[in-house]
Simulated assay, not measured.
Amino acid sequence: MVPPQWYLLLAGAVFCIGLFGILTKRNALLFLMSVELMLNAANINLVAFSQFWGNVTGQTFGLFTMALAAAEVAVGIGIILVLYRNFNDIDVTVPNTMRW
């Protein structure tokens, strides 16, 4: 049996990679991928603690988190398409005003 510390270490590493991607990348697609990495790190923690405590509550929350991630991707892809249509680029620093 794998101890929960290894799962926490893996989740911490995945979360740090996602945080690094959010803080350094300007591309909207890479930004969304970094958010997905952070959500997956949270899922790893939820499932690890669920297995450690012997109940399915963490796995249930993990399923809800996956549904949230799918909704986030759907909205994010829509935003990226609008960015590309209006600015011909998916750099998140280009649009600095909210206008029609």
Rank of each mutant, 00 (worst) to 15 (best):
90 I>E: 15
52 F>A: 09
62 G>F: 07
15 F>L: 12
34 S>K: 06
11 A>G: 12
1 M>R: 07
22 I>T: 04
53 W>S: 06
17 I>F: 14
37 L>W: 08
6 W>D: 12
96 N>I: 10
96 N>S: 10
86 N>H: 08
34 S>L: 12
30 L>Q: 04
21 G>C: 09
47 V>Y: 02
49 F>P: 05
93 T>A: 15
99 R>E: 15
22 I>H: 04
6 W>I: 11
15 F>H: 14
84 Y>N: 11
18 G>P: 11
58 G>W: 00
12 G>M: 06
79 I>M: 06
3 P>M: 08
15 F>R: 10
73 V>S: 03
70 A>D: 00
83 L>A: 11
6 W>A: 11
30 L>G: 00
51 Q>F: 12
10 L>G: 08
55 N>R: 00
27 N>W: 02
29 L>G: 06
90 I>T: 15
95 P>H: 02
30 L>A: 04
32 L>V: 00
36 E>Y: 01
41 A>W: 01
88 N>E: 15
59 Q>D: 05
96 N>L: 09
86 N>F: 08
4 P>F: 03
80 I>N: 05
57 T>F: 10
27 N>V: 08
91 D>M: 09
83 L>W: 09
76 G>S: 07
14 V>Y: 05
45 N>S: 08
80 I>W: 03
57 T>Y: 09
35 V>T: 03
100 W>G: 14
42 A>F: 07
21 G>E: 08
67 A>H: 03
81 L>Y: 13
66 M>L: 04
99 R>F: 15
81 L>M: 13
58 G>I: 01
89 D>F: 09
37 L>H: 09
97 T>N: 14
9 L>K: 03
50 S>Q: 02
2 V>Y: 10
12 G>A: 14
72 E>P: 01
73 V>T: 10
